[in-house]
């Protein structure tokens, strides 16, 4: 996929008026069924990447769906302009819950792919987790924090429940704690921003990364079979 469109400032700004969903392909049977209904390549199977702009009920494609934005747009400015027109048509209002990844294993890998840290809320008390989830959601959608972390919730016993910031390993299969915060703190937002600002991921070269991973025996086990023929 040509992901360059998605990092362009005009597209990022236009995305603020959309609900942005990025699914991890081959990590959920149910989501693969959703993708199957949106776009199938020439193979007739779910391919590695999918792109679509959809109505708020998720049922109507608003532009040509495909493997990537360049199926529908000649450049990022055209994509941003189109998104702006669509956003003005639908309107809508701001609303946000904590955008969590389904589990820590996947969150660490996604964070490694993005070059971002993981922000994990961890406690064995479900009521405490729910309360912290609400508090962190209010912070996570502050403009200064948008797109700065990958979030997840973990219900398990730990010596110090709270908010943990993790640096993913290069191949997203391990991580290292780089910070801890009290989610009940009145300064949660500014403290989190400070912690996240201190994280800097190393640049990756895709070819070198794959070569090194193969040499080291790195293997990512997907949850469902990979069906991309390419």
């Amino acid at each position: 996929m040509d992901r360059s469109f998605l990092s362009k400032p005009e597209v990022v700004q236009a995305s603020r008026q959309f609900v942005c969903i990025r699914l991890a392909t081959y990590e959920s049977f149910e989501e693969a069924q959703v993708l199957r209904g949106i776009f199938l390549g020439g193979s007739g199977q779910v391919e590695n990447t999918t792109f679509a702009l959809l109505s708020p009920d998720g049922k109507t494609p608003l532009v040509y769906s495909g493997r990537s934005p360049d199926f529908a747009f000649v450049n990022s400015q055209q994509m941003a302009d189109t998104m702006g027109r669509i956003a003005r048509h639908f309107g809508g209002r701001s609303s946000g819950e904590l955008p969590t990844v389904v589990n820590l294993r996947l969150a660490v890998n996604v964070a490694a792919c993005d070059g971002l840290p993981v922000v994990e809320l961890v406690s064995e008390d479900p009521a405490q987790l729910r309360n912290w989830q609400s508090r962190l959601a209010a912070v996570a959608w502050e403009p200064a924090l948008l797109g700065k972390a990958v979030y997840c919730l973990e219900r398990r016993q730990v010596s110090k429940p709270g908010l943990v910031v993790l640096a993913p390993g290069k191949f997203g299969q391990d991580s290292q704690q780089i910070g801890w915060l009290d989610p009940d703190s009145a300064t949660l937002g500014s403290d989190l921003l400070r912690l996240l600002a201190g994280y800097h991921a190393a640049e990756k070269n895709a070819h070198e990364h794959i070569f090194e991973g193969k040499r080291k025996g790195v293997f990512w086990q997907t949850q469902i079979p990979v069906t991309d023929p390419h």
Partner: peptide, 20 residues
């Protein structure tokens, strides 16, 4: 929210090598 959806799907691995 009544907002439209930008949907992307991508596999968090390449040739089963994770982290990219």
């Amino acid at each position: 929210s009544g907002r439209p959806i930008l949907l992307i799907a991508a596999a968090p691995h390449c040739h089963n090598v994770s982290g990219i």
